[in-house]
Design a protein around this nucleic acid. Sequence first.
DNA 1: TCATATCCATGATCTAGATCAATTAAAGCT
DNA 2: AGCTTTAATTGATCTAGATCATGGATATGA
Lengths: 245, 245
Amino acid sequence: MSNVDNVAPLFKDLADHYVACQDCSLYRFCLPLGLHSRDLQLLDKIIKRSQTYKRGQPLFAAETEFTSLYVVRSGSFKTTISTSNGRDQVTGFYFPGEFIGLDAIHQQTYKSNAKALESSSVCELPFDNLQELGKEMPQLQVQLLTRLSKELAGDKGLMLLLGKKAADEKLATFLLSLSQRFKERGFSAAEFQLSMSRGDIANHLGLAVETVSRLFSRFQDEGLITITGKAIALKDMEKLQSLCE
Amino acid sequence: MSNVDNVAPLFKDLADHYVACQDCSLYRFCLPLGLHSRDLQLLDKIIKRSQTYKRGQPLFAAETEFTSLYVVRSGSFKTTISTSNGRDQVTGFYFPGEFIGLDAIHQQTYKSNAKALESSSVCELPFDNLQELGKEMPQLQVQLLTRLSKELAGDKGLMLLLGKKAADEKLATFLLSLSQRFKERGFSAAEFQLSMSRGDIANHLGLAVETVSRLFSRFQDEGLITITGKAIALKDMEKLQSLCE
DNA sequence: TCATATCCATGATCTAGATCAATTAAAGCT
DNA sequence: AGCTTTAATTGATCTAGATCATGGATATGA
């Protein structure tokens, strides 16, 4: 997640320093929520925090062995799945506190590709260790279940978007979803950086790049947004909202 | 799930008689898989098995309080979500052994509508009881997690379908997905009844009814299938497969 | 059993958004 | 700093599939 000058950089140091769960600014979005202090320390021990990823670097690849879940610590990622003939679909964008890899549990194989969109870091949760811990920590299992359920609900919403919405409704819905997630994390809901390319946005929404580009221009002409490169400001949230239906 | 004459009716009596989990023909698809006999009996006790639903009857409605997960025992269901202005998207079809309501866990509110497509029955799993049980039965939690993960992976596949596939690819993919699920359940992979309407299929695939109707006719002309009303036979699986990409 | 509603098939037409094409603007690299 | 590659914008054209329209087939129900 990129910063905007006028916004408090809540997460800026996460990539650089070791931060225990209990001191982490992501605590309230994250897995440990609701765990007792003792349990939290046990969880803390199994988390690998070393990794950082550069723009474009893969976190994992489809069809490789599932070993770990990941939680974004800083930056952002995208996931994609592919047809056998090479077309692919961006299935999600992931920001600090969000889980990546949940759809790999059932077959013990990653089904998606995950790539960093900018310089990013993650907490790695080796799944076997997590399950061991879960046996003595029902609360942890509940958290995991809740996370999975939340992603599932989000994906149903995306199915509605992909199946039933017009291009402008899709883009408006997408922008407000980003806005909401930035807001929850203490960033400005109105101004932020798009860490993903126009192509990624288009792909994710089931549109052509050109359509997204034209819509950005049109939205700007209509006073809904201002956009310069990757920097976007939402100027008329109400109208954007009404566009989502 | 409807029957076809030449197929062994594995599940035919489930709606009529009480069947304990350990005697249930769905056992190997279902939640109890891997539980010890003692645990199985405990699970068995919290399951409500009374309900049957007629064609069109709701199992639950969106925006109502989440109380239970459901597993289809016989028949089939569809789930839908709606935009505020009344358009809706069929998010899934559910057959015996499949879970309904998993996306409601995180907000304790059903997000979707679930409706029976034919005379159907379910096992109701009150979620609070299930969680109580989960505290002493890690294996149960693992099963739940796995189920959620599987549905999540399926939905990512649907996103690929909705976002990137052409109409004929969508329909072929859909038919083979049904075929696969029938096969897993001991029914014919080649001949089955479509319990859902053309409209439901079209909606689910992000198409117009007319397009689905035309495609069924075209597939029949091309010798890929034969279809008479709700009865369909897949005549050329290889070609259908190659259409999916 | 007949009536009425819903579902399905097929043809004719239209359009949102894809594709093609050319230009400009940013990012990376050495 | 300049060179090369990739990303983004904008315009012109095309097309897959939506929409509109009609008639036939299947259910539902008094």
